[in-house]
Design a binder for these strands. Structure first.
Lengths: 328, 328
DNA sequence: AAAACCTCTGAAAACCGTTTCAATTTGGCG
DNA sequence: CGCCAAATTGAAACGGTTTTCAGAGGTTTT
């Protein structure tokens, strides 16, 4: 910057002001400075800026990101969320720091904040990290979480209306005449718990007598979901005629298992998924599902987080949640 | 750091040395410093460090990332790659900066480098950005690209052996007795071009007479691929009995279209995809595909890039490429 | 006992911007 | 023409770390 200053025959602060668009600098001077900077390929050092400003304009995004090694697979849905967040952050001139998958220690996150590596956090998925998130937010970390609302609002949560999603799925299945309904998912995840609750409540309010069962599904991958399903069904007294799976990916695995066992979908069994992931309409059968507006969700999370970083208050919010019927 | 120094009754440089694990500091002194730091929740300022070191330990990752708005969808395969890269970077203590989706301007990337925002780049997918990548690499930017090798090796490319992948697909189809083979994809993408080449060469070397056709597919989404397929097939003289699609997602859309038109897959038509994305075995029919070791690819890209950043030379490399047969 | 050598520590400079504050110039107005 | 305000600029300090270099104290060698 010193060199630019000399070449433009001004002082360093003036160069700084010219480049940062300060109104305190004369228009002609600015032109001169910009010309020199452009010509000599000068770019301000972002680290010096961050150091001085005590602000990094960087947001850490943490995905409940399951590496291949552990035979986990991340849901395409998360990718959709990430795309939304990425675009929204880009629009706000914020950098997106994707945290390493195995960083699930509150200390690691706090370190990032303390060392001024990032200004705030977006957690995509609560997973089983609720305790960690509670602790972290108790430390006053600026953060927004995709997931399900908690009893006490510790941090800002954006998510779909899981109870409503469950109800929509339930109503659909009941309208289809299904009376032996299976829920697939791991209700120790908060989001999934509420989806199940919604499903149950719609069954209770339907006036019909519904047989309700539940299939735990932990440690998700297509393969393990499929195998769990096969072994579950082989031990079950009766096969369900309606299934609500916590995600489209799970629905796909379940459908595969049902077909393997000779059930026709959707003729014998109706299956509802969640997320409306790309391609869910191209599965056979096309998957009836609950859509969440992931793109808006990204924008919403980012705008909330920016507010929080600026010291303003915001509340958790729920995203539009609708049933997409695919009957063919 | 000054405060820590005072509390530990040493000077600032000593604190710095203690925290960075320098051997120049006495063991007892180090203990004292670490204790004070821990107790007072002190963390070194990463930005000051980066400023001083002229090294950020941050790698920019650019995805040919297609936002929802443009009705594009990113292939789950890219997510797999990203997961691999993320884990590998984490192991090397490098931060991963995910660039905004619309950043496709070499100037933007150069700015990131010049302003010392990042040390290097990983581009996941060449897409239609080859010119940009050439320009950027000509500026001496440290970078590694996932994609297909070019004639002249301008930058380090990691990718599958696309020609071989195409050959494997072709051999499979021909062995299945297919003689009317369709390639689906946009050969203006380098990777896809070579896959097609491989397919053709296996057809030519087979000794049988193969009718070969080609369906352009630009601007991918499931929906548009499906529609293109429907309109292509309705105008074609004959329907193919073998299809090689440039990706599993495209294969899924094509299969959907073929079924719609009353063809049975795999009885009437054999379809081969590419990537072995999660769930490709759970589609109906399960998708025969070409697998690439994405996880190793991530590690390889990162290790290559680290070498390049350290001023060492490396060469492009090809990842294991194998056919996964799913006939059921 | 002097010389040579380690080991450990601290002062000062460097990294590269931005901000504060004071100074200079210019313009407006009576 | 003199005075005041506004516009523009620059000197110096600051943000937080690391590195260079020199020095203090202790140990070993001759």
């Amino acid at each position: 910057m010193d060199e630019v200053a000399i070449l433009a025959k001004v002082s360093k602060p003036t160069v700084s002001r010219a480049l940062s668009g300060s109104p305190l600098v004369n228009a002609k001077t600015r032109e001169r400075v910009l010309a020199v900077a452009r010509e000599h390929g000068y770019a301000v050092n972002r680290n010096a800026q961050k150091l001085r400003h005590k602000r990094t304009n960087t947001i850490a995004v943490s995905i409940d990101f399951l590496s291949h090694r552990q035979n986990h697979v991340s849901d395409p849905f998360v990718f959709e969320l990430l795309a939304g967040v990425s675009e929204a952050l880009g629009n706000q001139n914020q950098d997106l720091l994707l945290t390493a998958p195995n960083h699930n220690d509150p200390d690691v996150f706090q370190q990032m904040l303390l060392s001024r590596g990032v200004d705030g956090f977006i957690f995509l998925g609560q997973g089983h990290r609720e305790d960690m998130l509670d602790k972290f937010s108790a430390l006053g970390a600026p953060m927004v979480v995709w997931g399900a609302k908690r009893k006490k609002e510790a941090y800002c949560v954006i998510g779909s209306d899981n109870v409503r999603g469950g109800e929509l799925a339930g109503q659909y299945l009941i309208e289809k005449g299904r009376r032996n309904i299976l829920f697939v998912g791991d209700p120790s995840h908060n989001e999934i718990y509420w989806r199940m609750k919604g499903l149950k409540s719609s069954a209770e309010n339907s006036g019909s007598s519904i047989h309700f069962s539940e299939m735990q599904l932990s440690n998700f991958s297509y393969e393990s979901a499929y195998e769990s399903a096969i072994s579950y069904f082989s031990e079950a007294e009766s096969l369900p005629d309606g299934v609500f799976a916590y995600s489209d990916t799970a629905a796909m695995a379940i459908i595969h298992a049902l077909k393997k066992l000779g059930r026709r979908v959707p003729e014998d069994v109706s299956v509802v998924g969640y997320n409306d992931i790309p391609g869910s309409g191209f599965f056979s059968p096309a998957i009836t599902t609950i859509r969440q507006e992931t793109f808006l969700a990204g924008e919403l999370m980012v705008s909330k987080l920016m507010k929080i970083i600026d010291g303003k208050k915001t509340k958790s919010e729920t995203i539009k949640t609708e049933l997409i019927i695919r009957d063919t």
